[in-house]
Simulated assay, not measured.
Amino acid sequence: MRVLQVIDKLNVGGAERIFVTLSNLLFQKNINVDVLIFINNGKLQQDLNNKINIIDFQRQSKFSFKNAKQLSLILKNYDIIHTHMRHVFRYVKVVSLVFNVKTKIILHDHSSNTKKIPFLLNSFLSPKYYIGVSNNLKEWAISTLNIQKKFCFLLHNVVVSIDNCDEVKKKEGAVVVGNIKPDKNQLFAIQLLPQLNTSLTIIGQIQDIDYFNSLIREIEKLSLQNKVTFIHNEFNVQKRLNNFQFALSTSIRESGPLVLIEFVAQSLPFIAFNTGEISLILNKDLPNFFINNFEQQKWIEKINNLKENNIDLKSIYDKNFAPNLYLQKCLNIYKEILNS
């Protein structure tokens, strides 16, 4: 079985991390896997196993006939084309139709948006094989994209736990992890600080400069300049998590969120707004870690109750998110598709 993993670029983001993790896991399992990236040199490309073959394909334009022809010749060498994200799938699908590529193409959907249907994705460019990272996405694909139920698969996100060997003498403060933009709602975490006797570290790249500036203004308004720290260029968050007492996840809308897996992998207690598939899974074991509103006082109460936490978070990670379980689920999906 020859597998090609395809994505547009490897900047820091949840879908990109899954792409890297899955490619590495497949390679470690001795699966014949190559990767194709439309635009090279993203920050996460350095995390790919350096023995994985990266196909030399530099797309100049999605309207380039030369690039499309080049891609079609590449696609024909594989049994499975595993595309990540909707816009990547659409481009690969168009190329396969124009140049009569018969290879089986999967759309691995990492989106949290089930309200908007991407152009032609429910008709001419509808995928035959679909992987959603949540049940919500899977049901949306069946009902809205008209994909056969037997070819719609669920594959929850995964994080490979890293060993934190550095001993921390004293854990201090709270941490919020996520690229800086309105959906991540870091503003709410900042507004909680005056009622908490602690500091806050916000880890994430700036994706919306206007929103970032609004955070700075709020920090100044609340006189929290000495309490809030930003870290913008951290690409291995897990190694820092051992420094903190607890984490907050204030995102308004997520398909994951992937960061919750990182928290349990590093045994870091957290309070999170209840959104996304990972929240649904963890809520079964950690109901007191989740909240369904943005009422400040309710969050403060939840945070204060974390001091009484003595749950073995690492065992919850091993039970739900072990990489070997994730890989086997993916291989089972490949097998079903190849046998169809």
Score class of each variant (00 low, 15 high):
1 M>S: 15
3 V>F: 08
3 V>M: 11
15 A>W: 02
20 V>D: 08
24 N>D: 09
27 F>L: 01
35 V>D: 03
35 V>I: 12
36 L>M: 12
36 L>S: 10
38 F>C: 08
39 I>D: 04
41 N>W: 00
45 Q>V: 00
45 Q>I: 09
46 Q>E: 15
53 N>F: 00
58 Q>P: 00
59 R>A: 06
63 F>T: 09
65 F>T: 09
80 I>P: 01
98 V>S: 08
103 T>Q: 15
104 K>E: 06
115 K>V: 08
132 G>S: 10
139 E>P: 01
142 I>M: 10
144 T>M: 06
148 Q>N: 15
158 V>I: 12
163 D>V: 14
165 C>V: 00
166 D>S: 08
167 E>M: 04
169 K>L: 12
170 K>S: 14
185 N>Y: 03
188 F>L: 10
194 P>S: 10
200 L>S: 01
202 I>M: 00
202 I>F: 13
212 F>Q: 06
212 F>W: 02
217 R>P: 00
218 E>A: 06
220 E>C: 00
220 E>K: 15
221 K>S: 11
223 S>M: 08
230 F>T: 07
232 H>Q: 13
235 F>W: 07
237 V>S: 11
237 V>W: 04
241 L>G: 07
245 Q>P: 02
247 A>F: 06
255 S>I: 12
275 T>M: 04
288 N>M: 03
309 N>H: 01
309 N>S: 15
313 L>D: 04
317 Y>F: 08
324 N>E: 12
328 Q>S: 14
332 N>S: 09
332 N>A: 11
334 Y>E: 06
335 K>P: 04
338 L>Q: 14
339 N>Q: 13
